[in-house]
Nucleic acid binder design. Structure first.
Lengths: 118, 118
DNA sequence: GGCAATATATCGCCAGGCAAGCGATCACGC
DNA sequence: GCGTGATCGCTTGCCTGGCGATATATTGCC
């Protein structure tokens, strides 16, 4: 199992991850957790104490919508991305891209200098 | 002037930026602020209330070292990166690269779907 | 003298990740 | 039946760290 990422790194893009997963199809919390884990190559282990407050926040912001479903045997809360959520996703993806480009540019000079491995 | 980045995005990599600047040469706080601003294409405006606590934190962790200097006319506090700081920089750069790759992979599927601009 | 820029610093607010814990349900083996 | 572990949702409290506001002093310019 490779190393996980620090909380501060994740902070910027957990919304992004969740929204992107939901953009690929509706699902419920627990499954979302598994999907993020898998999609990240076991690197992002979304904790329950992180996931549920996050979902509630996104719902409060009308970016996602929820519905209890028990017809599938088990009582689960399904989440679906809204139109506003898709807009946010695309905006946030764009911001992410700009950010990455920005940091890469800042790191470029030192990549050649500090390539001394421990 | 392009849009700035949200605090949550910056949170993951401000240390990285400061260390990378200092790896390129010693300098003092205020100048560092200007350098980050310039190096980021005016996108990262490091606030004083962010910068100084950050520098103190890095110093407490022995990643940088400081020295008051007033021989250059003005009294300024110069910061220099330590050996431990360089190691941290290289480790954090590696983590950043892994993180970016991870997120890019997660976003890849939705890039083709949600390309509907507002 | 007045005012902006330079230079460092601190305080309090607040958002949010996360550990820990809770309660409930379901499947499986014994 | 009964324990055990996975599934499923949720909450509380801690702690970190960016940021606005504010303080303070110096320098240069008009």
């Amino acid at each position: 199992m490779s190393q996980r990422f620090g909380p501060d790194l994740l902070r910027g893009s957990l919304d992004l991850m969740v929204l992107s997963i939901l953009a690929g199809g509706s699902t419920y919390g627990y499954d979302l957790q598994q999907r993020v884990l898998e999609a990240s190559g076991q690197l992002v282990q979304l904790q329950a104490g992180t996931l549920y407050p996050l979902l509630h926040r996104l719902e409060a912001d009308k970016l996602i919508r929820s519905r209890w479903e028990d017809s599938t045997g088990r009582k689960r809360k399904w989440y679906e991305i809204t139109a506003a959520g898709k807009q946010r996703l695309s905006a946030q993806t764009a911001e992410w891209d700009r950010y990455v480009a920005c940091i890469q540019a800042m790191l470029a000079p030192i990549r050649s200098i500090v390539t001394r491995p421990v």
